[in-house]
Amino acid sequence: MPTGFLTTHVLDTARGVPAPGLRIELFDGAGQKLAEAVTNADGRTDTPILPSKDFATGTYELVFHAGDYLRATGQAGGEPLFLDRVPLRFGIADPEAHYHVPLLLSPFAYSTYRGS
C-alpha cells in the first residue's frame, strides 16, 4: 500500500493572508472527480485531498475555484473575471512521497510549485 499523500493550500498574495473558504476539486487523468474540499482559516484543507489509502501514481488535476473566492473578498473587479477557475495539471511519480501543490493567488496572477 502506498504511503504517499497529496496536500494543497491557497495563499492570497494580494492581501498577504491565507485564502479561507476556497473550493478545490481533484480529478484523475481521465477527468473523473476524486475529491472536493474547502480551505480552512489557514488556507489548507483539513485532511489530505488525496490520502494514502487512495494515493497512486498518475496524472491529476486540481481545480481551484478562485473566482468565487475573489468575489467573496471584494477582489473580483469586472465581469468576466480575469481568473475564475484555475486548473493545475501535474504528475505523481513516487507512490511513497508527500506531494504538496499550493496555489499563490491574486486577482490577475497565480503561481504554483511542488512544496514540502
Rank of each mutant, 00 (worst) to 15 (best):
F5G: 00
E96H: 13
A14P: 01
F5R: 04
T39I: 09
T7Y: 00
A72G: 08
G29A: 11
P107T: 09
P87K: 09
T57S: 09
R71Y: 07
L62C: 06
G4D: 01
F108E: 13
R15E: 11
L104G: 11
L26C: 06
L11N: 05
F5D: 04
F55R: 02
L6A: 00
G77Y: 08
G21F: 09
I49Q: 00
V63L: 10
A19W: 02
V101W: 03
P48Y: 00
D28F: 03
D94L: 10
T8P: 03
P80L: 14
L26H: 03
P48V: 03
T7V: 12
L62H: 02
F55D: 01
N40T: 13
T57N: 06
D94V: 08
H65C: 06
L34N: 04
D28M: 07
A97Q: 06
E36W: 00
L81R: 10
E79D: 14
G77H: 12
P95I: 12
L103C: 07
V101R: 12
P51I: 01
L26R: 00
F90S: 10
K33E: 11
A72H: 07
Q32E: 13
L88K: 04
L104W: 08
A93T: 14
T47C: 02
F5M: 10
P102W: 02
F82H: 11
A37K: 05
L26Q: 01
T39R: 04
Y110Q: 08
F5V: 00
F27G: 03
A56T: 07
V86T: 08
Y110V: 05
I92T: 04
L11M: 10
G43Q: 04
A41M: 07
T47G: 01
I24V: 15
P51N: 10
V38T: 15
G16E: 08
P107G: 09
F55C: 04
A35V: 04
V10N: 00
Y113V: 05
G74Q: 12
A56L: 07
H100A: 14
Q75F: 08
E79P: 02
D42L: 11
A66R: 05
V63P: 03
T8G: 00
H98N: 13
D42G: 07
P2L: 07
G29P: 06
R114Q: 10
Q32A: 15
S111A: 15
P95L: 09
L62D: 00
D46C: 04
S106I: 08
P20T: 09
T57G: 12
L103T: 06
P107R: 13
A35N: 14
F27E: 02
V17L: 13
A97V: 06
G115F: 07
R23E: 12
L103P: 03
K33T: 04
A72L: 11
Y69R: 08
H65R: 14
